[in-house]
Design a protein around this nucleic acid. Structure first.
Lengths: 208, 208
DNA sequence: CCAAAATATATCAAACAGATATATACAAGA
DNA sequence: TCTTGTATATATCTGTTTGATATATTTTGG
């Protein structure tokens, strides 16, 4: 028996705020939970279809001026029940498959400068994400993100903000940890390369 | 076009040390790279078959006393070339889908004590893994893990040890970052609950 | 007018996870 | 002796997931 689909709960959770289309949910996903939850259209649309079939959501078509017709999904009471039930269950731990680390592990088979360059890339990527997350955290109380939400959902989002903040703090810890490892590892690799160069300059004393 | 299979390179990399069976590779995977690379039999056997068909590895059957017959795989020159080529390519960044964080994000819809308990579980899990990794790091130079390797592979593994150490340091940073977030978040959640209790005790002054 | 961008929905093929199954061999307990 | 449990070893299954790709409507800019 394979894994249980979790996209379902991410979508149901978003729909507790307001009815949305698949496209809206992708955008909200990218902006609010994207730092810890990857989601893509390849999942969203088939899962929405399945949830509609199981009456976890209902769908209405909404025509709009200046943009194509949308399919707007609304959570049902059954959907709310399924969502709450999931919330009471233990989460599954993360599964890691870090390709960079696999390449580092086998690093003796390639140019050490190449390994260092890759870790530098990852370092930059982490720093970039950290800056984004800091921006989110620092503007979280301005209420800017609430503006697009109907008045009756504002209280709900206000109550959810501290939890959102905890997830942004998670992202900051996560990427900071990796960024720090990057810095240490680059330093260590360059020192080891320095030692090697030193050995070479002294006169090929080392067999290494 | 879907993702490219990466199990292939994990297996080829392991085979650079010595010929191995699928079962051996799973064990080595669990012990040496498991902290950053999940692998399972469901992938290993089909991928080995495919690699054999493409002449990246060859397979011989090996009978042994007191245990069932094994299929031992050996890397070919083509396999080595494919592996080296992969090493020179940029790695793909990690994809995150942290179910705990998804539950934290929607935490307003459930009992705050439940959220705290879940974070406590994750905290303990991280601490346990950190202890393991520290054990690995601290015994890394004892050469204990080299003992099962043929004499002619020892130099190779010795040269790989510093890279292995970097991956263990990665794991330590990764899990420490999350452990620290857990501690902070538990504290914050309990303080917020303390404030709420305080408000209630004072006389229902708060509308929250 | 055409191309690019935005809004919006949808599908595809392979990778991947972990449960499950089967087979060989040995050890411990009834 | 037989059964159960454990270790060694190979293998399959089914659903989730990834991200590339495709299609359609509408607006904007050259």
């Amino acid at each position: 028996m394979p894994r249980e689909n979790k996209t379902r709960y991410a979508l149901l959770g978003m729909l507790t705020y307001k009815p949305m289309s698949g496209y809206d949910m992708k955008k909200m996903s990218d902006h609010s939970i994207g730092h810890f939850w990857n989601e893509n259209y390849g999942n969203i649309y088939p899962v929405l279809k399945k949830m509609e079939a199981k009456n976890l959501v209902t769908m209405t078509r909404e025509e709009q001026d200046g943009a194509p017709t949308r399919k707007v999904y609304t959570i049902t009471e059954e959907g709310r029940a399924a969502f709450s039930q999931w919330l009471s269950r233990p989460p599954e731990p993360a599964i890691l498959r870090e390709e960079l680390l696999l390449q580092v592990f086998f690093g003796q088979w390639t140019n050490p400068k190449l390994i260092t360059a890759k870790i530098r890339e990852e370092d930059e990527r982490c720093r970039s994400i950290i800056r984004e997350l800091e921006g989110i955290r620092d503007h979280m109380d301005s209420g800017g993100n609430i503006r697009e939400v109907p008045e009756n959902s504002r209280q709900v989002m206000r109550e959810g903000t501290p939890y959102w903040r905890h997830t942004v703090e998670f992202g900051l810890h996560y990427y900071s940890g990796i960024r720090d490892w990057c810095a240490e590892t680059i330093k260590a690799l360059e020192e080891r390369r320095g030692e090697k160069d030193e050995n070479n300059r002294i006169g090929r004393k080392s067999q290494g």
